[in-house]
Protein backbone atom coordinates (compact mmCIF):
# COMPACT_ATOMS: atom_id res chain seq x y z
CA UNK A 1 0.00 0.00 0.00
CA UNK A 2 2.92 2.31 0.72
CA UNK A 3 3.94 2.47 -2.92
CA UNK A 4 0.57 4.07 -3.71
CA UNK A 5 0.60 6.78 -1.07
CA UNK A 6 3.86 7.86 0.49
CA UNK A 7 2.91 9.66 3.69
CA UNK A 8 5.37 12.46 4.39
CA UNK A 9 6.12 14.47 7.48
CA UNK A 10 5.48 17.64 5.49
CA UNK A 11 2.07 19.21 5.55
CA UNK A 12 1.04 22.03 3.25
CA UNK A 13 -1.56 23.58 5.51
CA UNK A 14 0.45 26.65 6.55
CA UNK A 15 1.51 27.41 2.97
CA UNK A 16 -2.09 27.05 1.78
CA UNK A 17 -3.41 29.34 4.54
CA UNK A 18 -0.71 31.99 3.99
CA UNK A 19 -1.32 31.89 0.23
CA UNK A 20 -4.98 32.81 0.84
CA UNK A 21 -4.15 35.47 3.42
CA UNK A 22 -1.53 37.04 1.11
CA UNK A 23 -4.10 36.97 -1.75
CA UNK A 24 -6.57 38.99 0.34
CA UNK A 25 -3.84 41.45 1.39
CA UNK A 26 -2.73 41.79 -2.26
CA UNK A 27 -6.30 42.55 -3.31
CA UNK A 28 -6.60 45.32 -0.70
CA UNK A 29 -3.16 46.73 -1.63
CA UNK A 30 -4.16 46.70 -5.31
CA UNK A 31 -7.22 48.80 -4.46
CA UNK A 32 -4.96 51.33 -2.70
CA UNK A 33 -2.61 51.20 -5.67
CA UNK A 34 -5.40 52.02 -8.13
CA UNK A 35 -6.77 54.79 -5.95
CA UNK A 36 -3.38 56.47 -5.43
CA UNK A 37 -2.17 56.08 -9.02
CA UNK A 38 -5.34 56.74 -10.97
CA UNK A 39 -7.70 58.79 -8.84
CA UNK A 40 -5.65 60.94 -6.45
CA UNK A 41 -3.63 62.69 -9.16
CA UNK A 42 -5.08 65.93 -10.50
CA UNK A 43 -4.94 67.23 -14.05
CA UNK A 44 -4.71 65.37 -17.37
CA UNK A 45 -1.02 64.50 -17.18
CA UNK A 46 1.14 63.73 -14.16
CA UNK A 47 4.24 65.89 -13.66
CA UNK A 48 7.60 64.79 -12.27
CA UNK A 49 6.95 67.01 -9.27
CA UNK A 50 3.65 65.26 -8.53
CA UNK A 51 5.27 61.81 -8.75
CA UNK A 52 8.07 62.93 -6.45
CA UNK A 53 5.64 64.36 -3.89
CA UNK A 54 3.66 61.14 -3.87
CA UNK A 55 6.78 58.97 -3.63
CA UNK A 56 8.09 61.02 -0.70
CA UNK A 57 4.94 61.09 1.39
CA UNK A 58 5.18 58.96 4.56
CA UNK A 59 2.65 56.32 3.47
CA UNK A 60 4.03 55.64 -0.01
CA UNK A 61 7.16 53.60 0.92
CA UNK A 62 5.11 51.66 3.48
CA UNK A 63 2.49 50.77 0.84
CA UNK A 64 5.18 49.80 -1.69
CA UNK A 65 7.10 47.72 0.82
CA UNK A 66 3.94 45.89 1.89
CA UNK A 67 3.23 45.29 -1.80
CA UNK A 68 6.75 44.00 -2.39
CA UNK A 69 6.72 41.57 0.54
CA UNK A 70 3.22 40.22 -0.16
CA UNK A 71 3.64 39.89 -3.93
CA UNK A 72 7.01 38.16 -3.51
CA UNK A 73 5.63 35.70 -0.96
CA UNK A 74 2.46 35.01 -2.94
CA UNK A 75 4.27 34.55 -6.26
CA UNK A 76 7.14 32.43 -5.01
CA UNK A 77 4.92 30.29 -2.76
CA UNK A 78 2.67 29.69 -5.78
CA UNK A 79 5.62 28.58 -7.92
CA UNK A 80 6.87 26.35 -5.09
CA UNK A 81 3.43 24.74 -4.85
CA UNK A 82 3.53 23.91 -8.58
CA UNK A 83 7.10 22.64 -8.35
CA UNK A 84 6.10 20.34 -5.50
CA UNK A 85 3.68 18.60 -7.89
CA UNK A 86 6.54 17.61 -10.16
CA UNK A 87 9.48 17.14 -7.79
CA UNK A 88 9.69 14.17 -5.51
CA UNK A 89 13.44 13.78 -5.12
CA UNK A 90 14.87 15.42 -2.00
CA UNK A 91 17.87 16.80 -3.88
CA UNK A 92 15.79 18.51 -6.56
CA UNK A 93 13.41 19.89 -3.95
CA UNK A 94 16.38 21.43 -2.15
CA UNK A 95 17.76 22.85 -5.43
CA UNK A 96 14.42 24.43 -6.39
CA UNK A 97 13.74 25.71 -2.88
CA UNK A 98 17.22 27.30 -2.67
CA UNK A 99 16.75 28.84 -6.12
CA UNK A 100 13.35 30.35 -5.21
CA UNK A 101 14.74 31.61 -1.89
CA UNK A 102 17.67 33.25 -3.71
CA UNK A 103 15.32 34.86 -6.26
CA UNK A 104 13.19 36.11 -3.36
CA UNK A 105 16.13 37.61 -1.47
CA UNK A 106 17.56 39.29 -4.60
CA UNK A 107 14.19 40.77 -5.64
CA UNK A 108 13.52 41.91 -2.07
CA UNK A 109 16.92 43.66 -2.04
CA UNK A 110 16.42 45.31 -5.45
CA UNK A 111 12.83 46.30 -4.60
CA UNK A 112 13.81 47.79 -1.24
CA UNK A 113 16.64 49.76 -2.89
CA UNK A 114 14.16 51.15 -5.45
CA UNK A 115 11.72 52.23 -2.75
CA UNK A 116 14.51 53.92 -0.75
CA UNK A 117 15.86 55.60 -3.90
CA UNK A 118 12.42 57.00 -4.75
CA UNK A 119 11.97 58.24 -1.18
CA UNK A 120 15.30 60.03 -1.12
CA UNK A 121 15.29 61.42 -4.67
CA UNK A 122 15.95 65.15 -4.85
CA UNK A 123 13.66 67.53 -6.69
CA UNK A 124 15.00 68.97 -9.99
Amino acid sequence: MDKNFKQTSRSGSLGWLLQRISAVILFILLLFHFITYHFLTTGRSVSYQQVLERAQSWWFPLLQFAFLITALYHGLNGVWSVLEDYTSSKTWRLVWYSLLLTVGVVLLFVGTLTIIKLYTLKAV
Partner: peptide, 8 residues
Protein backbone atom coordinates in the same frame (compact mmCIF):
# COMPACT_ATOMS: atom_id res chain seq x y z
CA UNK B 1 -3.04 16.87 5.87
CA UNK B 2 0.01 15.81 3.94
CA UNK B 3 2.15 16.97 1.07
CA UNK B 4 0.61 14.11 -0.96
CA UNK B 5 -2.81 14.68 0.52
CA UNK B 6 -5.36 17.43 0.13
CA UNK B 7 -2.71 20.14 -0.49
CA UNK B 8 -1.90 18.76 -3.94
Amino acid sequence: NDKNGVWR
